[in-house]
Amino acid sequence: MPSAAELPANFADEARFLLAVKLFEQGRISSGKAGRLCGMGRVEFLLAASRSGVPVVDLQGDDLTNEFA
């Protein structure tokens, strides 16, 4: 295991982002809280999460039909 001196400078930021993404993905925190957790605004977090492959919209059934109507 690398020592703290060997870790990348942005390791703590990356770890906070990954934690925020996972909690958001599980529905345990909102996108706004997730953004604050990793030092981003809500929209910035949603864009970054989407780029990371995390679905940021969960529409099902009637909600999905209404969205495309």
Rank of each mutant, 00 (worst) to 15 (best):
M1N: 14
M1V: 15
M1E: 12
P2D: 06
P2N: 07
S3A: 15
A4G: 11
A5N: 09
A5S: 14
E6Y: 03
E6Q: 07
L7I: 01
L7E: 13
P8S: 07
P8L: 04
P8M: 02
P8C: 05
P8N: 03
P8F: 06
P8R: 10
P8D: 09
A9M: 09
N10V: 09
N10Q: 08
N10Y: 10
N10A: 12
D13Y: 11
D13G: 00
E14F: 07
E14R: 15
A15Q: 01
R16G: 00
R16P: 00
R16Q: 11
R16S: 14
R16L: 13
F17D: 02
F17E: 03
L18M: 12
L18I: 03
L19P: 00
L19D: 03
L19I: 11
L19W: 09
V21W: 07
V21T: 10
V21M: 13
V21H: 06
K22S: 08
K22H: 13
K22N: 10
L23S: 06
L23P: 03
L23T: 05
F24C: 02
F24A: 04
F24Q: 02
F24V: 00
Q26W: 15
Q26S: 13
G27M: 01
R28A: 11
I29F: 09
I29D: 04
I29R: 03
S30K: 06
S30E: 02
S30V: 02
S31D: 14
S31E: 10
G32I: 07
G32H: 09
G32D: 12
G32P: 05
G32F: 06
K33S: 12
A34P: 06
A34Y: 10
A34C: 08
A34S: 12
A34H: 08
A34I: 06
G35T: 05
G35P: 05
G35Q: 02
L37M: 13
L37V: 05
L37F: 15
C38P: 01
C38H: 01
G39P: 07
G39L: 08
G39K: 01
M40S: 06
M40W: 10
G41E: 06
V43D: 14
V43L: 05
V43N: 14
E44Y: 00
E44W: 00
E44V: 04
E44S: 08
F45L: 04
L46W: 02
L46G: 04
L47C: 13
L47M: 13
A48Y: 03
A48S: 12
A49T: 03
A49Y: 02
A49W: 06
S50K: 15
R51A: 07
R51C: 07
S52V: 01
S52D: 07
S52T: 04
S52G: 01
G53E: 10
G53N: 12
G53M: 10
G53L: 06
V54R: 08
V54D: 02
V56A: 07
V56I: 14
V56H: 10
V56K: 05
D58T: 00
L59P: 01
L59N: 03
Q60K: 08
Q60W: 13
Q60A: 10
Q60H: 12
D62E: 15
D62I: 15
D62H: 12
D63I: 03
L64Y: 13
L64T: 09
L64F: 14
T65E: 15
T65D: 14
T65K: 15
N66E: 15
N66Y: 00
F68C: 11
F68V: 12
F68G: 03
F68Y: 15
A69V: 14
A69C: 10
A69E: 15
